[in-house]
Design a protein around this nucleic acid. Structure first.
Length: 589
DNA sequence: AGCACGCCGACT
DNA sequence: GTCGGCGTGCTC
């Protein structure tokens, strides 16, 4: 036991054995500057080296009965680890059987000395006061629900960029009260769309972009602003859910079913789940905003954890489902477009742009069923053709006649809305081997349909039955509910949680029994090379903490315990709720 | 991880 | 006798 100034430090290490706090003496010279959240360098004797770490708290005495080592160096007096972010990182790591320092790598950008100096010497910007914006298209009680910190699944208004205006209006409710709002978006296109919508109505000094497309300097500057100011709208990609925000009023996730939101970095917690944790810890409002709710969001509604909110204005695209019969017109036949769809598009294109959503970029054309841009161009001989896909990104098209051929997710926004939207390749999309085909298909169709101008026709090609009927009626939450019911019937995510266990068979077996997983819930064991075994286990949500705790104990046992001859790698790896096994290869977006 | 400690087999 | 193999444990 040690009295005096003691710093409790989290080491910056991915080792599970080191994922706890270590106590260090604070040298007299550092006592004034050594506050919670600062970066330090500390000796770790068993490793005979100096490691980086974060001071989590400063206390008067240590419970560790042994001599404490001394803090080696204070890296910077700036407190980069906010207390609420530490709590969130700990919770996120516990839930995903990971390590808090891995979460902190997502949460805290690399230090930039120049930027730090510039931010610290600059004067705090004068905050111009402003009033909350009226929330259009929704029941008036929505504003109060946001301010009260409710959890909501909000259906977006199916008009071009309406979601961005809604997100801005919701954020303004908390900004007006001096609290911060975090908006988490799948990609840079959506980030820029929300930034543009927000910039039009909010004071510019309240808007902060924080995402991975920024240079390290821009990113660190935005991060420090989030740490030092409140009443900001922080707009970013998945790691923005970990942005510092002491006075947090709202976390909003746009289109949480988009695969781009899946976190590839350890411990791989989905930002929607991180947002849920943060909502619980900080009492802010949570909004999952989308045209088509994910089955995950639908589940939260059904268990009563989130409240569903629909627009009060009854707006729905005019959707026409068509079968697979190909039109008689020679030109339509070329592009395998049903005649009704072709006639609608041919007429609409006289007024302005027409959107054609295809499953894949035309160039590859595997199997011959893919409509190429050239085929579509021949079907509309006088039209200007614009191709938008991952290789040729187009963010916006002007309000003029054009045939816009886009892969799912890459659709440009048309300033005045598309005069018609053709959703082709529906049958191809649904033929993929994936647990989430229907959900993904509906989400992609809905997002494209929402780009239509008021009154414009949306043609869904190649899909029939209840799915087509519900989509045409814009019954998207009901579709999600049906999908979720199907997953419940087969006991698959998101009706259950999963853990992917990889390691030596004995270690995997021990983990399965330690976690109390019955045989029926051990699925898809695969033998890998080097005698390793990979197994997925599933379990109910309420068993989550117990399963996570047991798996963490097993990992620690193997990390510290017996290792295979020569091999330094741990003998058991765990990945919680990994979506990859349930999706076809190359299907991750 | 990366290093020290410790307890059995061939050696100057 | 003792040098060093790697199985085991620990890091404030």
């Amino acid at each position: 036991m040690t009295d005096g100034s003691v710093a409790r430090v989290l080491l910056d290490s991915p080792l599970p054995q080191l994922d706890r706090l270590f106590d260090y003496r604070v040298p007299a010279a550092l006592v004034a500057d050594l506050t919670p959240g600062v970066r330090v360098r500390v000796p770790v004797r068993a490793q005979r080296r100096i490691m980086d770490g974060f001071v989590v708290e400063v206390v008067a005495r240590s419970d560790y009965d042994g001599p404490l080592a001394e803090i080696e160096e204070l890296v910077s007096p700036v407190s980069v680890l906010a207390p609420e972010v530490w709590r969130l990182a700990r919770g996120a790591a516990d839930r995903s059987v990971g390590v808090a320092s891995d979460v902190l790598r997502l949460a805290i950008p690399k230090r930039q000395v120049r930027v730090e100096r510039a931010v610290l010497t600059a004067d705090a910007p004068a905050a111009t006061p402003f009033e909350a914006l009226p929330i259009t298209d929704y029941p008036p009680a929505l504003a109060a629900a946001i301010v009260a910190g409710e959890r909501l699944v909000v259906q977006a208004v199916p008009r071009p960029l309406a979601w961005a205006h809604t997100a801005t209006q919701l954020a303004s409710q908390v900004l007006a009260a001096g609290r911060t709002a975090i908006a988490v978006l799948p990609d840079a296109r959506d980030i820029e769309r929300l930034l543009a919508a927000a910039a039009a109505v909010l004071p510019p000094e309240r808007i902060v972009r924080l995402d991975s497309d920024q240079t390290p300097g821009e990113r660190y500057r935005a991060f420090l602003r989030a740490r030092l100011e409140s009443g900001l709208l922080i707009v970013g990609n998945r790691s923005a859910v970990y942005a510092p925000a002491e006075r947090l009023g709202l976390v909003l996730v746009w289109d949480d079913g988009d695969p781009a939101l899946r976190e590839p970095l350890a411990p791989g917690l989905h930002p929607r789940e991180a947002a849920l944790l943060r909502q619980e810890q900080q009492g802010a409002a949570l909004v999952l905003l989308a045209h088509a709710p994910s089955t995950d969001a639908q589940r939260l509604v059904e268990i009563g954890w989130c409240r569903p909110v629909r627009p009060s204005t009854r707006v729905a695209p005019d959707v026409l489902p068509t079968g697979l019969q190909v039109g008689a017109e020679r030109l339509a036949e070329l592009a395998r477009i049903p005649s009704s769809a072709w006639r609608i598009a041919a007429e609409a294109i006289r007024d302005g742009p027409v959107l054609v959503q295809v499953a894949r970029p035309g160039e590859e054309a595997p199997g011959g069923s893919v409509r190429t841009a050239a085929d579509l161009g021949r079907a509309f001989p006088n039209a200007r053709v614009i191709v938008a896909d991952a290789a040729h990104p187009v963010r916006e098209v002007e309000d003029a006649p054009a045939l816009v051929i886009a892969t799912r997710g890459a659709e440009p926004v048309a300033a005045g809305g598309y005069r018609a939207v053709l959703l082709l390749d529906g049958e191809r999309m649904l033929a993929r081997e994936s647990l989430r085909v229907v959900e993904d298909g509906v989400r992609n169709w809905a997002n494209a349909a929402a780009l239509a101008a008021p009154g414009a026709r949306v043609v869904l090609v190649g899909v029939s039955g209840p799915l087509a009927r519900d989509f045409a009626a814009w019954r998207l939450p009901e579709l999600a509910a049906e999908e979720l019911a199907d997953r419940r019937a087969v006991r698959m995510p998101p009706a259950v949680r999963t853990a992917t266990l990889t390691g030596r068979p004995a270690a995997v077996d021990a983990a399965i029994s330690a976690a109390g997983i019955p045989g029926d819930d051990v699925i898809a064991p695969v033998e890998l090379e080097d005698g390793l075994l990979r197994t997925i286990v599933r379990f109910d949500y309420r068993r989550g903490p117990a399963v996570a705790g047991a798996l963490r104990t097993e990992i620690l046992r193997h990390a510290a315990g017996r290792r295979p001859r020569g091999a330094a790698a741990p003998t058991l790896r765990v990945r919680m709720d990994d979506p990859a096994p349930f999706v076809a290869p190359g299907d991750l977006g």
